[in-house]
Amino acid sequence: MNLIKIISLFALASLLSACSLFYGEDGLIKDTSYDYLKAKETAPLKIPPHLKHENNVNYTVVPAIGEQAKNAPSGKDISLVAPAQILDVLDNIRANKQSPVPAIYIVENEEFLWDTIINLFTEQGVKFSRRDKANRVLETEWVAVDKRGVWLGIAGEDDIDEFKAKFRIALSEGILKDEKQITVERIAAQMFNDDTDKWQDMANYWHDSAEMLNLIIAHYDTATIERDRNSKNAVVAGFKVQLAHDDNNNAALVTETDKALVWEKLPKVLEALDFDVKDRDRRLMTYFIAYEYEEPGFFASLFDEEQTPLPLESGDYQVTVTTVGELTAIVFRDGQGTPLNAETMVKLYPQLNKLFSDKK
């Protein structure tokens, strides 16, 4: 038994010795992690005159090489920051990938968006150097930030310790109907130098602005949850609708109720009418639905529980929510998007009016 242990120890020692021969600083296979430091500088890329390269953004810092590397941090001394992504995960948000600064398109009430962005900064004690409501532009005073990013939080000027930054946030028209655009840009940044006891300027990179945009998206998401919670009582209470026309003179139902509340109430109404909600697009404010008429069963006729059939053929339909002045319009369409005629809407109206008014 002792002989087996001795043999095992010799084998292990031999294995370790072999590893050191093959790997490590003195081995045959050397560590190449920092070989880029020895690379020779090549000529910069030249773009042909007929081509343009306008959207140039710094997703992360590229280590310097050649002569420029002498006074620059290298190897393990480089603080690498992972590329940031815009978190356009909500169903009414999409990223504007053509913008030179981080930007999103969002389907939302403009006044609600403006107030939500204002609240994000005021709640943290951040002041504004520019607050232009007419042009929907905000510029902050110095904001206390963390070196690793604003995702760790922001604070007002009184809490500035080592790093600070200023941001510009602009709200403008989007591309689609009812769509707005939010752009964010970090316009200044400084860090405190303990050696000189002074503030020194820092570079502004794309990911710095993207992190602030993500913070705005997260705050907006929280604000909409609170808004939806407060509006549920209004949805449950129900509201009146009337037959009228939309801006394109299509037969429609109109109501004084806010568009967001109508959007929330619609699925309950549609399901009560035996529509199957297949999909929804918040940007287009459209529900995609299907209807299949079923003959009532024997017992339903016995107990007089037969529901009045809808004046519709089985198939796909759409329902869109738009605005008509200060009113909200609801337009029913066929599967190709053609609005239903006035005669059909008159037949649908009694059941729709009852269901929109129901307190449930």
Rank of each mutant, 00 (worst) to 15 (best):
L9E: 02
A13Q: 07
S14W: 15
G24A: 04
E25L: 11
D26L: 09
S33F: 06
A39D: 08
K40Y: 15
E41V: 11
E41P: 02
P44H: 09
L45W: 15
L45A: 10
E54N: 14
N56Q: 11
V61E: 06
P63T: 11
G66W: 12
Q68K: 14
A69W: 07
A69G: 10
K70Y: 07
K76C: 00
I78R: 07
L80F: 13
V89M: 10
L90I: 09
N92Y: 09
N92R: 12
R94W: 05
A95E: 15
N96M: 01
P100K: 04
P100W: 08
Y105I: 00
Y105E: 06
V107M: 01
V107T: 15
E108R: 12
E108H: 05
E108P: 00
D115Y: 13
I117N: 04
I117D: 07
I118L: 13
F121S: 01
T122Q: 12
Q124L: 08
G125H: 06
V126R: 12
S129K: 15
R131P: 01
R136T: 00
E139M: 11
W142P: 03
D146S: 08
D146Y: 10
R148C: 01
L152E: 07
E157K: 12
E162W: 03
F163A: 01
A165K: 03
K166C: 02
F167E: 05
A170H: 00
L171P: 00
L171K: 04
L171F: 04
L171T: 04
S172K: 10
S172Y: 06
E173R: 12
I175M: 09
I175S: 09
L176S: 14
K180F: 06
K180W: 00
Q181N: 08
T183V: 08
V184C: 10
E185Q: 12
I187R: 02
I187L: 02
A188F: 03
M191V: 02
D194Q: 12
T196C: 00
D197E: 12
D197P: 00
W199I: 03
W199N: 02
Q200K: 14
A203M: 06
D208C: 02
M212I: 03
N214A: 12
H219V: 00
Y220P: 01
D228P: 00
S231T: 08
K240Q: 15
A244G: 15
D247R: 13
V254G: 01
V254T: 13
V254Y: 01
D258T: 02
A260G: 05
W263V: 03
W263L: 05
W263E: 02
L266N: 07
L270K: 08
L273C: 08
D274F: 04
F275Q: 04
R280Y: 06
R282P: 03
L284P: 02
L284A: 05
L284R: 10
T286N: 14
I289Q: 10
I289P: 00
Y291M: 05
Y293E: 12
F298L: 13
S301C: 01
E305L: 08
Q307M: 14
E313N: 14
G315E: 02
Y317S: 05
V319W: 07
T320F: 01
T323P: 02
V324F: 07
F332E: 03
F332C: 04
R333G: 04
D334E: 03
G337E: 01
T338N: 11
L340I: 13
N341G: 10
E343Y: 06
V346T: 10
K347G: 00
L348N: 11
P350C: 08
L352H: 05
N353S: 14
D358C: 00
